[in-house]
């Protein structure tokens, strides 16, 4: 391997440059810290974790009016039974913090007991949604792009021009507008049709995913086209002269070779897609960016939360980079 060769060639100057890199990195971090300390802002990083997970105080309230007939505690669980002339109702509660006692008269909405419960915060929920949207859009976008790219190099004018039109219009118009069109125009139309057959309307999430997949697909199509065209013509000539059809040659000879060249630019495209998903907030999908915005509005801690948001995106994109690098290495070994 090339990297092994390089290891044996390490000299003093090499380590000097490595040292310089770390000095610069520390300098940059130091500068960032200095400038954040300088600005007139009260940093409350300790308040950030609650946007990931927080302990919620859950209140169990009575839904009827009546007397507390009985409180029974068994195996760490408690049951309160409330009765009036007409009916009775029982509540499963946690015994730690019971607010009423036997014989009390309660009204509708009175708190019977409280308990603490861990819940996922806004940022973590947003992160999960961003991940979900991105993964589905990446899969759909890749499939769309693969067919788009193959159509682009086809000699059939219908396929070729359809693909070119798709690529040029999608690449040439803002994603924001496309999201609007998907949700407000296509979405309304599709949901109206669904309603006619008494099927539930699709949630905005799916229109968001569709717009992202469609957008990424156009770029992937160009990447796939370039990958296919980068394979030497002799390869398809050899395959065809053995009697393979166009699609057999594509499937067994051209695409397996093209995929290695496609992977690195594809990774870049997927990283873009993850960041582009931040636009989905405009159609009320509460992904990471929208979740952060909501958290900022209620907390008045914009700096900490936006920093956290950026770091979470970095975690997603960097993991994706690593996955693609791993796949690349594995394919090279298989070759």
């Amino acid at each position: 391997m090339a990297s092994d060769n390089r290891k044996t060639l390490k000299t003093k100057t090499y380590y000097l440059w490595v040292g310089l890199f770390f000095v610069l990195l520390t300098g940059l971090i130091g500068f960032l810290y200095y400038s954040t300390a300088k600005i007139d802002y009260v940093w409350r990083w300790h308040r950030v974790p609650r946007y990931f997970v927080y302990e919620n105080n859950v209140e169990i309230k009575s839904e009827i009016e009546g007397t507390v007939h009985k409180i029974s505690i068994k195996n760490g669980k408690a049951v309160i039974l409330i009765k009036n002339e007409a009916t009775g109702e029982s509540y499963d509660i946690y015994p730690e913090n019971i607010m009423v006692s036997q014989g009390d008269y309660v009204y509708m909405g009175d708190v019977l007991s409280t308990h603490k419960q861990w819940e996922t915060g806004l940022l973590l929920k947003g992160l999960w949604l961003t991940l979900k949207v991105s993964v589905i859009a990446i899969i759909l976008g890749t499939i769309l792009g693969l067919f788009g790219g193959i159509a682009r190099v086809s000699s059939n004018p219908a396929l070729k021009w359809a693909s070119a039109t798709y690529v040029e219009t999608i690449r040439g118009s803002p994603l924001l507008v496309q999201i609007f069109i998907w949700y407000f125009v296509l979405g309304t139309l599709i949901n109206n049709i669904l309603a006619q057959y008494s099927i539930n309307p699709l949630p905005p999430l799916w229109y968001g995913i569709a717009s992202l997949a469609c957008f990424a697909g156009a770029y992937v199509a160009e990447i796939v086209r370039a990958g296919i065209q980068s394979i030497h013509r002799g390869q398809s000539e050899a395959a065809r002269s053995l009697g393979m059809t166009y699609s057999q040659a594509m499937r067994h000879v051209i695409l397996p070779q093209a995929i290695l060249r496609i992977l690195p630019p594809l990774a870049g495209q997927f990283i873009s897609l993850i960041k582009d998903s931040s636009l989905l907030g405009i159609i009320a999908i509460r992904e990471l960016t929208k979740a952060t915005r909501e958290a900022v509005t209620s907390s008045l801690q914009p700096f900490e939360l936006w920093f956290s948001c950026a770091i979470l995106y970095l975690v997603l994109t960097f993991s994706l980079s690593l996955i693609v690098q791993y796949m690349e290495r594995r394919m090279l070994v298989n070759d």
């Binding site: 002799g234 390869q235 000539e237 065809r240 053995l242 009697g243 397996p256 070779q257």
Partner: peptide, 20 residues
Amino acid sequence: INKIRAELGMVFQSFNLFPH
């Protein structure tokens, strides 16, 4: 033509073996 090509073996100047 695929049927005809299968009956005619072709050898190229640059070999064109499938590298994968």
